[in-house]
Amino acid sequence: MLDVQFNSNNVNSNIENSSHEFFQIIKNFDKRNIKEVEPTTKSINKGIFDGDLSIISDELVILIFKKFNQGKNKKLIKKSVLYYLDNKKIILQEIYTYLLNNQINSNSIYLLGYFNYYGIGTDFDKKKAIELYKKASELENKLAQLNLTEIYLYATNVKSDENLAFKLSKKLAEKEYASGINNLGWCYENEIGIEINEPKAFELYQKAADLGNSNGISNLGWCYKYGIGTHTDALKAFELFQKATNLGNTYGMSNLGNCYYNGIGTNVNEKKAFELYLKAANSENDYAQHHVAKMYENGDVTKKDMKQAIYWYKKSAEQGFQPAQDKLDELSKEN
């Protein structure tokens, strides 16, 4: 298997090309009138014109798409959105109101879904968000397709549609979108909508990694760690997890923590492992939260602290990580 070295210049070029192509899709979209999701009041800030908010909406979609394609953490993407809006001095309820009143294309439909999913300018409403993602996806909005795919592949407490997840992943991968390629690899590795094909999964992770997608880099490390579609190589796995961590990927952080904890591709360093697990846990990584909880429970590296242990078990369980919920049930019975 050809080992392609990560090249940041190529990454930037690929991402910029994808973003440009996506912007053209937005610009060329037939702006047919689509029924509003629900009526509401007019814009709050009279100094902001609809045209301004339309441009801001397009720029937000490009921003979100670019970061998704890089494999950025969802929490960090939301922070980037909030920072962008704050920098533009946009009131959150104001742009949410605009989106409610201007469901004129797939872009605005998607953004309204995104705001509902992450509680921006409104309460969290994931059910409504998914409905809007589906609507925008049917209008061939690539970002909506990507978000919908990742919900079906990775989200908990959501009824999955594996066949649709595979279909959309394949469609996005054919467009050379790095996140779509990575998700398609996940489908092949985990038999989601298609038979297991580990060599194919490895090939797709490699391609996503070459495009600079941090999830692809981390998943490629996972393949080398466990010999999925390739030979086992602890040193290579460690290097890839380190690279993903440097890009801010929480899966990379968690896996790198595991390497330090167990001496995989490096010397055992439990203190370093705890630091990495804690950093990933604070960025909502459920596995890392569970491991931090165990370390607090056992007094492993850190001082034993059951209050902290229960806190992190709950955080992990809230995200649907079953071992954390099992542990909480066990602790509840003991008390």
Rank of each mutant, 00 (worst) to 15 (best):
G248L: 01
A273G: 07
N12T: 12
F166W: 13
D50A: 12
L276W: 07
I15T: 05
T230S: 08
N298I: 05
K66P: 02
N190D: 12
Y114Q: 12
L331H: 02
D329T: 15
S179F: 04
F65R: 00
S137E: 11
N10R: 07
T97M: 02
Y152T: 13
K35C: 12
D286K: 10
D86Y: 09
S332D: 14
Y114M: 11
Y277L: 04
Q5T: 14
K200Q: 15
K207I: 09
Y83E: 12
N298H: 06
F241M: 08
K127N: 08
K294Q: 10
F22V: 01
K279N: 15
K200L: 14
T230D: 09
G257D: 04
N102V: 12
A317R: 00
A178P: 09
H290I: 06
C223Q: 11
S332Q: 13
N285I: 09
I64M: 06
L220W: 06
K67T: 10
K27P: 14
N163H: 05
E297C: 07
A288H: 08
E334H: 06
I192Q: 03
Y152C: 09
M1S: 14
E162R: 07
A309T: 13
K175A: 13
F238G: 00
N33W: 08
L132N: 11
N116A: 12
S254W: 02
S106W: 00
A208D: 00
I95D: 02
K243G: 06
N73S: 14
K304N: 09
A129V: 08
N102G: 09
M253F: 06
F6W: 09
I95R: 00
G299T: 07
I15C: 01
T40L: 05
L276R: 04
L53I: 03
I109V: 15
D3G: 03
D86V: 06
T302R: 01
S316W: 11
A317M: 01
W222F: 15
K243E: 14
Y177S: 03
K159C: 13
L331Y: 01
A209K: 01
I217R: 01
N141P: 10
Q5H: 10
C223V: 13
S13W: 11
G216C: 02
A281P: 12
S254N: 15
Q145L: 05
K27M: 12
